[in-house]
């Protein structure tokens, strides 16, 4: 394995591309910085940490929530934010990804927040940009969505205090999920003793056990005594075909209902990265119920993204 491309020679964060290989100390630093922003009311006043810096939101794939929270986070740090919906502009004119990046770099970008449909796109951009320009992966293919996983860790720590005694279950389409991969790396790096994934065999990646998780195929045993339940979004195009026969059958066997949730610990929290498919991976009664912390995830996401950008700017 080549050297970790997101750290500099002193081990400082230069890009946030994946949780895979990120030291626990950096994850904790990000969570603590986010905590600081939360406690000091950084949601109501602007901080000057990114003043004079330009953050380019480079979205090759549509997104509302992630792009918006990155934009809010950057603006609260006083950055100039430029949103580019690349899918609709240069790429359709045949410009290559790296040409696009070069052109924006020439407009003195300091940071790129990148979302792309292909795994590895953010890594490639990070390898290409000049030193001092930071890349934040806002989701690449099936590979990674590190800020989502970090905000999930922030949420877990907020509600559960620590990670050392938890049992966590991730339910649904692990195979195609960048969120699940980043969550698994974050949970195992933070020493969560038991991480489970629950899904039919068609949605479990090969050798996923090597990532440190236990595989379950039924909800009742998979959810037994867990402290945290993390549901995943099931993409529409996966619902009918050779992976799953129908959304109805998926919901019946793997949709999170109050009844299935009762196997978990009574104080278990329920999370979802959004946007939710109610009645597919999660029942409305659970999504809106007392154990759901889904809206807290969204709020915390801003603090976590602020923390990531602030730390990267400090490491310039």
């Amino acid at each position: 394995m080549s050297a970790n491309p997101q750290l500099d020679s002193q081990g400082r964060l230069q890009h946030l591309l994946t949780i895979d290989g990120l030291p626990a100390s950096i994850i904790t630093q990000i969570l603590n910085t986010a905590q600081h922003f939360k406690e000091t009311g950084a949601d109501s006043k602007k901080l000057p940490l990114l003043a004079g810096k330009s953050v380019f939101n480079l979205f090759f794939e549509p997104s509302t929530r992630t792009r918006t929270t990155f934009e809010i986070a950057a603006k609260r740090l006083s950055a100039d934010v430029i949103n580019l919906n690349v899918a609709a502009s240069s790429q359709s004119k045949g410009e290559t990804l790296l040409d696009t990046v070069d052109n924006l770099s020439a407009m003195s970008a300091d940071m790129f927040v990148v979302r792309h449909a292909e795994s590895g796109a953010a890594h490639m951009i990070a390898r290409h940009v000049a030193p001092g320009i930071h890349v934040v992966n806002a989701g690449d293919g099936r590979h990674a969505h590190p800020t989502q996983a970090l905000l999930d860790m922030f949420t877990i720590r907020h509600f559960k205090g620590s990670f050392e005694n938890l049992r966590v279950a991730i339910i649904g389409d692990v195979l195609h999920s960048r969120v699940a991969r980043s969550q698994i790396h974050a949970l195992t790096t933070l020493k969560v003793p038991e991480v489970r994934v629950i899904a039919p065999k068609t949605l479990i990646p090969k050798d996923v056990e090597h990532m440190g998780v236990h595989v379950y195929h039924d909800m009742e045993t998979g959810l037994k005594d867990v402290d945290v339940v993390m549901t995943l979004r099931l993409q529409n195009e996966r619902m009918n075909g050779a992976l799953l026969p129908s959304r109805e059958e998926f919901f019946k066997y793997y949709g999170l209902t109050q009844e299935k949730l009762s196997a978990a610990r009574p104080d278990a929290i329920v999370m979802h990265p959004g946007p939710m498919n109610r009645g597919v991976e999660i029942d409305s009664a659970v999504a809106d119920g007392p154990q759901s912390v889904i809206l807290s995830q969204v709020t915390f996401g801003i603090f976590v993204r602020m923390a990531v950008m602030a730390i990267l700017a400090e490491n310039t």
């Binding site: 895979d20 795994s119 590895g120 690449d140 293919g141 099936r142 590979h143 990674a144 960048r178 991969r181 990646p205 090969k206 050798d207 996923v208 090597h210 990532m211």
Partner: peptide, 15 residues
């Protein structure tokens, strides 16, 4: 290859 690396990197795999 459908194995550890493709699973970790999120690359569609060839078994």
């Amino acid at each position: 290859h459908d194995g550890e690396v493709a699973s970790r990197l999120g690359l569609a795999a060839i078994p």
